[in-house]
C-alpha cells in the first residue's frame, strides 16, 4: 500500500531553518517505520540523516518523534500509526542533520552518575553471590538501551538542559539497587544536587516514551525515597 510520510528536514550547511518534506512509498502494513525511512533513503533521497543499526529495538539508535511522540522507528509498525506519518528529531539536543541529533550531551549526563560498579572489597575467586530477590530489585533498569527517548520527552529537561534527566537516573538506579555495588553514597550525592533527581515533576512522559517498557518514574521515585530515608532498602 502507499504510505505517506512527512519528514522534518534540516541541513545546517544549507538550510536557514527546518522544513517539512513529503514522501509516498509503497510498504506493507506490517513493515516498520524504519523500513519506510530506508526505502525513502534508498530510492528517493539518499541524503536523509538518521541513525539505525539493529532494526529490532535493542540498540537504541533510532529514537525520533513519530506523530508527536518519541518512538524507535524500528519498533513502530506502519499499521499502528496514523498517516501521514510525521517524523521529527527528538527535542532538546542540537540537530546535526534531519533526524540526527547531537547525543554527546546525553552521554555526558550518563557519565556523570558514575555508570559502573564501584567495588571496594576484594574480588572472590568465583562469582559474588546475589540472591534472585536482590537481583530482581534492579532488573527493570538493566534494560535501558540509552536511546534518549525519555530524556528528550521530559518537560523538566526542556526547561533546564542541565537536568541530569530520566535516562541517567535509570542508569544510576541500576547500580544503587545492585547489592554488589559499594558506591551508593557517592551516586546518591550526585543525584541529590539541584540538577539531580528533585527536578523530576513526575509528568510520566518518560514512561510513555520508553521503548523498553521501563517504569522510569517508579525508578526515579525509588531513588528519591532512598535519598529521603538515607538508605537503599
Amino acid at each position: 500500500m502507499d504510505v505517506r510520510f512527512e519528514i522534518l528536514r534540516f541541513d545546517p550547511a544549507r538550510d536557514a531553518k527546518p522544513h517539512w518534506e513529503d514522501y509516498t512509498v509503497e510498504l506493507e502494513p506490517t513493515d516498520r517505520v524504519l523500513d519506510g525511512l530506508e526505502k525513502i533513503k534508498g530510492e528517493r533521497d539518499g541524503s536523509i540523516g538518521y541513525r539505525r543499526s539493529c532494526a529490532h529495538g535493542v540498540c537504541g539508535s533510532d529514537a525520533m518523534k513519530i506523530n508527536g511522540r518519541n518512538r524507535l522507528a524500528c519498533k513502530v509498525l506502519i499499521r499502528s500509526v496514523r498517516q501521514p506519518i510525521r517524523i521529527e528529531p527528538m527535542m532538546g539536543f542540537t540537530v546535526h542533520k534531519d533526524l540526527l541529533v547531537d547525543m554527546e550531551p546525553f552521554f555526558k549526563k550518563y557519565r556523570s552518575i558514575r555508570p559502573y560498579l564501584i567495588e571496594a572489597s576484594e574480588r572472590p575467586d568465583a562469582e559474588r553471590l546475589q540472591s534472585p530477590e536482590n537481583r530482581e530489585k534492579f532488573d527493570d533498569t538493566t534494560k535501558c538501551i540509552l536511546c534518549g527517548a525519555c530524556t528528550t520527552s521530559c518537560p523538566s529537561f526542556w526547561a533546564d538542559p542541565n537536568y541530569v534527566g530520566p535516562a541517567a537516573i535509570v542508569q544510576a538506579h541500576r547500580f544503587i539497587f545492585d547489592s554488589r555495588d559499594e558506591g551508593k553514597e557517592e551516586r546518591l550525592k550526585i543525584l541529590n544536587e539541584r540538577e539531580g533527581v528533585w527536578a523530576c515533576r513526575t509528568v510520566f512522559n518518560c514512561v510513555d516514551a520508553c521503548p523498553r517498557g521501563i517504569q522510569v518514574t517508579r525508578a526515579i521515585g525509588e531513588v528519591k525515597q532512598a535519598l529521603t530515608r538515607g538508605k537503599v532498602d
Partner: peptide
C-alpha cells in the same frame, strides 16, 4: 549518490 553533502553522508 544523491547526497552531495559531507556531514553524515550515510549514502
Amino acid at each position: 549518490l544523491t547526497d552531495r553533502g559531507k556531514a553524515y553522508n550515510a549514502e
